[in-house]
Simulated assay, not measured.
Amino acid sequence: MPTLPENAVLIPIDMQQAFDAAPWPRRWNERLDENGLALLAAWRAARRPIIHVRHDSVEPASTLRPEAPGNAFRPGFAPQEGEPLVTKSVNAAFIGTDLDLRLRRLGADTVVLFGVSTDMCVSTSVRVGANLGYRVILVEDACDCFDLPDGEGGTIAARDVHRAHVATLRHEFATVLRTAEIVAGL
């Protein structure tokens, strides 16, 4: 089992209620919440830092805009006392936010990411984090994404979208682990 550095920071990304209803397509990972909550519980028990990321859309029709019910965190995913929240309006948790500054003030060189969606905000955050010099760990079984129109009248299944993005991230941007490996490494 990998041992995580003491300064590793857990970053849940966009664990919001909007993704459970229209207009969002079908998701594939039925264990998203179970795995994400296990990560949070283990991280909190180890007294390690967590920085939550929430998407606050600026698009008027978005289910993720701050005043929309879907903007709320999924049950159990809201920050607890002392856990900071970073809000973003684009696909990357590092763009237009103070996430990088917060991590540098903590002395963090490793970030552990999970959330929704693998191919959008999670992937973009992994790539930017790696490009900023962080060791990035992606918890692949605590991520989820949606069926994706292929532009030719068909649909790419969410599980296939996830697998392709995880493979790309593993190849160049992140170490890819599973929830059980992370929990054991704490």
Rank of each mutant, 00 (worst) to 15 (best):
E59P: 02
D20V: 05
Q80A: 13
P66T: 00
R74T: 05
L10M: 11
A22G: 09
N91K: 13
W28N: 14
G153K: 00
A41Y: 06
A130M: 10
V136E: 11
I50R: 00
L10W: 03
A180P: 09
A22N: 07
P84G: 00
D147C: 02
V126H: 09
F94T: 08
R54E: 10
S57E: 11
G82V: 09
L99G: 00
A61W: 08
T155N: 01
V122L: 07
M1P: 14
R102E: 12
Q16E: 08
M120K: 07
C143T: 15
A46F: 14
P75L: 04
A8T: 01
P12I: 04
A164W: 10
R54C: 13
M120C: 14
F19I: 07
T155R: 04
I13M: 08
F77T: 01
H55Y: 15
F94L: 03
G129T: 13
T3H: 11
W43R: 05
I95V: 15
T110C: 10
P149V: 02
A184Q: 13
D150S: 00
D100S: 01
I50F: 08
V183L: 09
H162T: 14
D147H: 04
L101K: 05
S89V: 11
D141C: 04
H55E: 10
E67Q: 15
L37R: 15
A142T: 09
P79N: 06
R26Q: 15
T3P: 02
G36V: 03
D20Q: 10
V90M: 08
L186K: 04
D14E: 13
L103M: 03
R159D: 10
E152M: 11
A22W: 14
Q80C: 08
P2Q: 02
M120L: 14
E140A: 15
G185P: 13
A108W: 14
I13D: 10
L40N: 04
A184Y: 05
F19W: 15
G96E: 10
P75N: 01
S117L: 15
H52Q: 14
Y134R: 02
H162G: 07
V86P: 00
T155M: 11
V176G: 05
N35Y: 10
R27H: 13
E181W: 08
S125P: 06
H162S: 05
P60W: 07
D33G: 08
I13N: 02
W43T: 04
V128Y: 12
H171S: 12
A92E: 03
D141W: 12
G76K: 06
P25Q: 05
P66Q: 00
E152N: 12
A72P: 07
P5S: 01
A45D: 14
A167G: 10
I156P: 03
L101P: 00
A46H: 08
R26H: 11
P60Q: 00
G185M: 12
A42P: 13
L10Q: 03
A92V: 13
A158S: 12
I13F: 11
L99D: 02
